[in-house]
Design a protein around this nucleic acid. Structure first.
Length: 567
RNA sequence: GGCCCCAUCGUCUAGUUAGGUCCAGGACACCAGGUUUUCAUCCUGGUAACGCGGGUUCAAAUCCCGCUGGGGUCACCA
């Protein structure tokens, strides 16, 4: 089989199995594979590993594709997807299909070849027999290893039994020499033959195992570099043995350190269920508070640590409980209002470092996808595991939001709200958001945070709740001078034509000067009157977004409230 | 438990390949000031780490060994 990778640079691949959403750790793997290929003017291939028929699904495959596309991790070859007008994937070299379930003939060809060359063999033990042997080994506190019983039958017999349709698995004969993985991140890693056993390359159901499929596909797709998580390090000697048995070249390998929660535990989808269960118990909720889940299902879920609620139900539940679930999948981060730029930047920095200084002598940490693609090397990766620090991610994301132009921010925020917070997009048009942009950008770390900044405008004029302390301090204290200024300024507002931020700011300034008081003396009463509290974005934006009628209504209502308050 | 990987501020890391320029630099967080009509942004300053024990060497965060600690893996999952 010829491999057509000579005309360009390195070829990397990301090969998720479609068994759920794209995990944030997977996203980092994909990002770095992408960056490596981009930087080498090579190709980034996306392949779907759906050999586990019982767990794979079409919808999670689509979800993973969307997540990657949203992050801007574009694949040159692989399943086709149209995302925001851009076509991704395709098969210009004719190395597809990119779904392993559609490549069975290919795998079987190599498996047959290995058997005929006596490098692999069918074995006829049942899973139950092997299980029993494994349990025995565990009980005897020795490591379990397949005993090569399948080899006691002659080659001809094995083949004829197999061809007669007897159920079997196929195992690779492992060599009795040590195998060294030349890892580009970790250095040489050698595994002794005593650690090997004849692992399965084809299952009873006729599907290849991951090991066989990955080796065949990588070779046939011309993959030159494999970047993957360190959990695969121990698999690599097997893959090298398989490559040697078939006659494939061994690609370059890089095993990346794993990412963990701050407490050292694994970042797992289950974390979301865990937190929800905890909150349910703390709040003493016993019957299902959400649609689509019966009380019976709910209590089963609550009692069973291993039971998980599906994603939509979990989100609905979190809303009822008023908790924020930990983000684990890319979709979670998207929903929470992270920007691809912030997420990618943080992810790349988790384990990789550009080792470059800024002009002011600080380390370069903020960079975009182009920079990453142009500078990523495996040698720049650290070897140790790292913890996922949401606080630093939040800071990076906030920086990215603040760096957006007002127009970019408005359109990004609006598009996000249309998808994840329709109450917000119903209340504010994109034009409203443009007015709000300068005020909101520096006050939120995520797009979802934006809601908190403008929540005063989300409530009805007669539903503003006054913070007693703020009212006292701004309006009542000092002979109700604040209230007097507020009502005086109401008349100014009544006479205003253009109710826009700049005009409002000017009017506030001029009125304060005419009354011979500092800006704060007028600004704070006004702020409390329209928002109920002493904290809000600058007055211009705050009043403008409410509109003149609403502002006057709120001033009147606040005036009545204040009159009724005792000193 | 066997095998494998790893070990610098609370966290992410620079420095380790070619030992001295490191009483260890940056970022996030935190603390204290400043700017600002409030909040936020922004600016200035500060606290804070080479896991432990042995070597080698004139000299070790850097090299070697041991210990401890963390992680991975031991499927007809990927």
């Amino acid at each position: 089989m010829s491999i057509s990778n000579t005309e360009s640079g390195s070829i990397t691949r990301f090969a998720p199995s479609p068994t759920g959403h794209l995990h944030i750790g997977g996203a980092r793997t994909a990002l770095l594979c992408w960056a490596f290929a981009q930087g080498q003017d090579g190709k980034f291939v996306l392949r779907i590993e759906d050999t586990d028929q019982t767990r794979s699904s079409e919808s999670s495959m689509r979800g993973i594709l969307e997540d990657l596309a949203w992050l801007g991790i574009d694949w040159d070859e692989g399943p086709e997807l149209e995302f925001e007008g851009e076509k991704l994937g395709g098969d210009p070299r004719g190395v597809g299909p990119f779904f392993q379930a559609q490549r069975l003939d290919l795998y079987n060809k190599y498996i047959r070849q290995l058997i005929e060359e006596d490098k692999a063999y069918p074995a006829f033990e049942t899973p139950e027999e092997l299980d029993a042997a494994r349990k025995e080994a565990i009980a005897a506190k020795t490591g379990y290893k397949y005993n090569r019983a399948g080899l006691e039958v002659s080659l001809e017999d094995r083949i004829s039994r197999m061809d007669a349709g007897e159920l079997h698995v196929v195992r690779l004969k492992m060599p009795d020499e040590a195998i060294t993985v030349k890892d580009e991140i970790l250095g040489d890693v050698t595994v002794e033959p005593s650690e090997f056993d004849d692992f399965i390359i084809r299952k009873r159901d006729g599907f290849p195992t991951y090991h066989l499929a990955v080796v065949v596909d990588d070779a046939l797709m011309g993959v030159t570099h494999v970047l993957r998580g360190q959990e695969h390090l121990i698999n690599t000697p097997r893959h090298i043995a398989l490559q040697e048995a078939i006659g494939f070249a061994t690609p370059g390998y890089g095993h990346m350190p794993l990412i963990f929660n701050p407490d050292g535990s694994k970042m797992s989808k289950r974390d979301k269920d865990k937190m929800a269960k905890k909150a349910v118990k703390e709040q003493g909720i016993e019957s299902s508070p959400i649609d689509g889940v019966s009380d019976e299902e709910f209590s089963r879920w609550l009692k069973d640590k291993t039971r998980q609620l599906d994603s939509d139900h979990l989100i609905a539940l979190a809303k009822v409980l008023e908790i924020t679930l930990p983000e684990i999948d890319v979709e979670d981060f998207r929903r929470a209002g992270y920007l691809p730029s912030g997420l990618n930047n943080y992810l790349a920095l988790l384990g990789w470092n550009p080792k470059t200084k800024n002009e002011d002598g600080t380390d370069l940490e903020h960079f975009d996808m182009d920079y990453l693609a142009g500078h990523f090397t495996m040698g720049g990766m650290s070897k140790g595991q790292s913890k996922f620090d949401r606080v630093k991610l939040l800071s990076f994301n906030g920086d990215e939001i603040a760096a957006l132009s007002d127009e970019e921010f408005a359109s990004t925020w609006h598009a996000w709200a249309m998808k994840y917070d329709t109450e917000l997009s119903d209340r504010f048009s994109q034009a409203d958001m443009l007015t709000l942009a300068p005020a909101v950008k520096t006050r939120c770390k995520t797009l979802a945070d934006g809601r908190g900044v403008v929540k005063f405008a989300l409530i009805a004029d007669d539903a503003v709740e006054y913070d007693g302390k703020a009212v006292h301090k701004a309006l009542i204290k000092g002979e109700r001078k604040g209230l007097e200024l507020l009502l005086g300024f109401r008349e100014v507002i009544a006479g205003m034509e253009a109710f826009v931020p700049e005009a409002i700011e000017t009017a506030v300034k001029e009125f304060a000067e005419s009354q011979e008081v500092g800006m704060g003396k007028l600004a704070q009463p006004l702020r409390v009157a329209v928002t109920g509290a002493g904290v809000s974005p600058p007055l211009g934006q705050t009043l403008a977004i409410l509109g003149k009628e609403s502002v006057m209504a709120r001033i009147d209502r606040c005036g009545e409230f204040t009159e009724a308050e005792k000193v």
